[in-house]
């Protein structure tokens, strides 16, 4: 036997020790996961679903948003002329507005045609025919030049209203505003749902990790007595949590990608319907990296919480 005291010269420097201990913990934890493939797969699936559902909804909302200004841009203005204005004057007003750069097209709907259309739309044609006088004025349907912002649209409405012979301008963009509000509400709903699902995932993960820690109770007790620091004891479990979380994130990214491939056809058809230049956004690079990162953070947090709770119980026993 040699001298009983340790020989510090033979030890590595602190950084090398730290790296080596991490390598061992990372490797051992990974091996332990692969030893139980079914259980590990189920944990990954659970994390993946909790991440994929809110992010799929988020992706959908993000795809809907560009449609909104487009629809607003195509908002058609109905310029109602004064009732005493005759067809010739109406055509003059039409030409005047058409000459403006901020206007795309102007269509004149004569009062006879307007009455016809109104009658068709409401089914009141016979009633309207019995009127001795057409109550409708000549109307100009004005399409603003694209793109047009809300304020520019309002300015245009003001300019149209100040023209002579114009009675009033109707901009039926209320449903656009309603869609915008719906989107905001949807976003909040997705955030709340996502938060709840992620919290659920953390709790379920923490429980799984608690069992993983408990399975190595013997080892923890021994390591504690022979001088392993809390960080040393905790390290393999942090890696286990990290693998659970990040693995779930990878799986979630695949799910999202598959979903977007599956939806591309129908959604792009929908865009065409709305005459929108948009196309379904693929999850791209942003979504997968955010999913994997948030999965890793969730796993790490869950294992930290589980380990802290377990060790506190151990100490106060």
């Amino acid at each position: 036997m040699n001298s009983p005291t340790g020989q510090p010269g033979e030890r590595w420097n602190r950084a090398a020790v730290w790296r080596a201990q991490h390598r061992i913990a990372a490797h051992d934890s990974w091996r332990k996961l692969l030893q139980r493939p079914v259980a590990t797969g189920l944990v990954w699936l659970m994390v993946a679903i909790s991440l994929a559902v809110p992010s799929a909804l988020l992706l959908t909302l993000e795809n809907l948003r560009p449609i909104v200004p487009d629809v607003a841009g195509s908002a058609q203005l109905s310029v109602m002329l004064d009732r005493e204005v005759n067809r010739t004057s109406a055509e003059a007003v039409q030409r005047q507005i058409e000459s403006w750069a901020r206007v795309d097209t102007v269509r004149l709907v004569g009062r006879e045609q307007a009455l016809l259309e109104f009658g068709e739309q409401t089914g009141l044609a016979t009633l309207l025919a019995s009127l001795d006088r057409n109550p409708l004025p000549h109307t100009l349907r004005v399409l603003p030049a694209l793109p047009v912002s809300d304020s520019a649209l309002n300015r245009l409405i003001g300019e149209l209203e100040s023209l002579p012979n114009v009675n009033r301008v109707v901009a039926d963009t209320r449903w656009v505003a309603r869609l915008g509000e719906t989107l905001v509400a949807g976003e909040r709903w997705v955030l709340a749902l996502g938060g709840a699902m992620i919290l659920g995932a953390i709790l379920a993960l923490a429980n799984t990790l608690h069992l993983a820690i408990d399975a190595r109770r013997e080892e923890i007790l021994v390591v504690r007595v022979i001088g392993g620091s809390p960080a040393f004891v905790r390290r393999p479990f942090l890696y286990t949590g990290l693998y659970f979380g990040a693995g779930g994130g990878v799986l979630a990214a695949f799910m999202l990608w598959a979903l977007s491939v599956w939806l591309t056809g129908p959604v792009n058809a929908l865009f065409l319907l709305y005459d929108s230049p948009g196309q379904l956004q693929s999850p791209g690079f942003k979504y997968p990296s955010a999913l994997i990162l948030s999965g890793a953070i969730i796993g790490w947090l869950a294992s930290w919480a589980a380990a802290e709770r377990y060790f506190r119980q151990l100490e106060t026993r």
Binding site: R11, W12, R14, Q21, I24, V223, G228
Partner: peptide, 10 residues
Amino acid sequence: LPLVIAGFSP
């Protein structure tokens, strides 16, 4: 195990 904890080279 104690050597891993104390940080001896493999």
